[in-house]
Amino acid sequence: MRNIFLFIRRYFNFLFFVLAQVIALLFLFRYNRFHEAAFMNVATEGTGWFGSKYDNVQYYFNLKKTNEDLAKENELLRNQLLQNYSTPDSNAKLVRDSIPVDTLGNLRLYAWRGAKVVNNSVSLQNNYLTIHRGEKQGVKKDMGVISPTGIVGTVINTSDNYAVVMSVLHRQNRVSAKMKKSGRVGTVQWDGESPLYVTMINVPKSEIIAKGDSVVTSQYSYLFPQGIMVGTVSEIVDDKTSNFYTLRLKPATDFHKVEYVTVVENIHKDEQKKLEEATKKNQ
């Protein structure tokens, strides 16, 4: 017994080092699976506060670009307004459509909430954004996040006033996407190498693809409405051993400059998932 204590005393430094390493690695490897740890919640609130203070300064420098993006988005939305389209009126009498006004919220599928980005990283292996909107303002886990120009990521952790978004530039991120031209569906992910490109897999070689083709979110995504820009094809990698292309995409969102994002909530997501899981269990 005495020898054990002597041993511990003698190698205390080394043992402490090993202990610290084990704790650090435990944090690191558990985090991927259980990132909702209560400790992280507090940390999000704290670092989020720092981030929003700093962002006040940095925001100023990106004003011009942000303004341009928002103006463009406004232009796009204005073009989609109903009053822009007119067909010769063949109606005999005016009938008021009662469906578009949905006061009970039964027909609504997506709800949108704007938020400001207060912290952001692009240069790490797994990148996250912090947005200044949390549980109290209606942001929950597993909601999609988009910017005026394209998709940004998924909400993975929330505190009272902040939420952490796993960016598309994260090795665990998977987005169901399709070629805009043909509607062929594939998966967009990130290989962790260059933050300037993301990868799209599972596009069969029968597909005719050109550089510059648009890739948008598919109709099968739980998180995003279909047709939101993901990126444009910049390189087609022809792997001889596979029947599928690997496409290198230039992301539509400039992750380095993103200032305002919109959080998308798919209201029927839980219902859909529940049904699908119940079906799996029955078989």
Binding site: A20, A24, F27, L28, N126, Y128
Partner: peptide, 14 residues
């Protein structure tokens, strides 16, 4: 805690 990667930099610094 700023980069949302608990343990990564801690391990290297230790």
């Amino acid at each position: 805690y700023f980069t949302q990667t608990p343990g990564l930099h801690a391990a290297a610094c230790t």
